[in-house]
Design a protein around this nucleic acid. Structure first.
Lengths: 221, 221
DNA sequence: TTCTGTGAAAGAATTCACAGCG
DNA sequence: CGCTGTGAATTCTTTCACAGAA
């Protein structure tokens, strides 16, 4: 491992590897080579090795990687070896779906608070979470130990939601609203932007017949 | 415009530009320069110009780009100047949220069919769409002219959903399930993968204190 | 003049190819 | 041997810098 810059896309690929390793583990496979893993992810084996090499030496020459061992290492790297506390802002259809989803899968994260600005949502309960007004955010974030804010409000309210989350003290934001948020550099933001993906898809379908251009694309993007 | 390879990320940026141009248009601005637009998107002006140059010459030297005009051109390029017909597979919490969302925004797409394998979902109505069993897919896709399939089922059923959509004749798939789907090259797939983003976010938060590595990242990724 | 469009240069990411370990 | 880990080579992206149009 060298002291190098790590491209964010390499981190995304790590998350893909983790997923595939889980599948392999479930199938009872104990060892996997970079060629095999690359094959499953449909990328180049050198890419797999290089991505892992950013973080350490996890393989055994002549053999490959122990599935369980590598999975554990990647989980540690991604910080998925512990439980993260989420706070939801916006209990609409999407927010509701996210709360329900988190309840049904055991995956290293759980919602511990939920907020909405609409009076008719306040007091609703999902499991043992009660929907609170935005004004309670600062207090609740502290009380419940919310580390990551999840924004599922209309685009016009997303920046306000982000500002409130930041000043309440969250360290990261997962943003489902189709806007690019402003925030201090100390708070990390990841966007889950369905409409951008849709734009790319429609472009491909539109261009598919008249193949004037060849398009290049990436894993996990 | 040259006959060149277009990176997929440039197409994503085009979708970002479209969004920002809409905001500018709403604010009544008529002209925008590459410097201004780049500023809004927090990228390099040459990048904006180069991205646009992949597709044509839309600007006026010494002036900039007409906001409305450029927005229209980008919409044409992305194929967002017409209505796309979607078919949903999986009417769970997320699927429901997507149906509801599409009803509330007017944005160049609409769901014209919905499918679920669970008998208790079949017959449910959202607006004028009735949830149908998977077996009706082939017939309904033809009848309603579904072009894009949206997968919102559990990961273990996603490949089956994709196979059925493909053989029913859809041309593109927007996949919300956390799996990489196999499909013929003639069918485009875009993944909206919230859990990969979460992995990246947790990584950043975990690494934030011990800033051993500097991470590079991209717009719209 | 101002700002676009674009070759050329610089910078990143990916892939090759092989030394070296098990 | 077979496979990892990694410099070197290649390819892809971004940025610079300026010619040329309005």
């Amino acid at each position: 491992m060298k002291f190098e810059k790590i491209p964010s896309i390499a981190v995304t690929r790590l998350a893909v590897y983790a997923r595939k390793l889980e599948h392999l583990d479930q199938k009872g496979e104990e060892v996997v080579s970079s060629v095999r893993l690359a094959d499953i992810c449909r990328i180049n084996p050198a890419q797999v090795r290089k991505d892992l090499a950013y973080f350490g030496q996890f393989g055994i020459r002549g053999l490959g990687y122990y599935v369980k061992g590598l999975l554990l290492e990647i989980s540690k790297i991604l910080g998925l070896d512990r439980e993260w506390h989420f706070g939801l802002v916006g209990v609409g259809n999407l927010g509701w779906a996210l709360l329900k989803h988190a309840q049904s899968v055991k995956k290293g994260y759980s919602f511990v608070a939920a907020f909405d600005k609409r009076p008719n949502r306040i007091g609703l309960k999902v499991g043992d979470i009660r929907v609170e007004p935005l004004e309670s955010m600062k207090c609740m974030v502290k009380e419940k130990g919310v580390e990551i804010g999840v924004i599922a409000v209309k685009p016009e309210w997303a920046q306000d939601a982000a500002d409130r989350l930041v000043s309440a003290g969250v360290r990261g934001i997962l943003n489902f609203a189709p806007v690019e948020l402003n925030s201090p550099a100390s708070v990390s933001i990841e966007n889950v932007d369905f409409s951008l993906k849709l734009g790319v898809l429609c472009y491909r379908l539109t261009t598919a017949k008249s193949k004037r251009h060849h398009i290049t694309s990436k894993l996990g993007a």
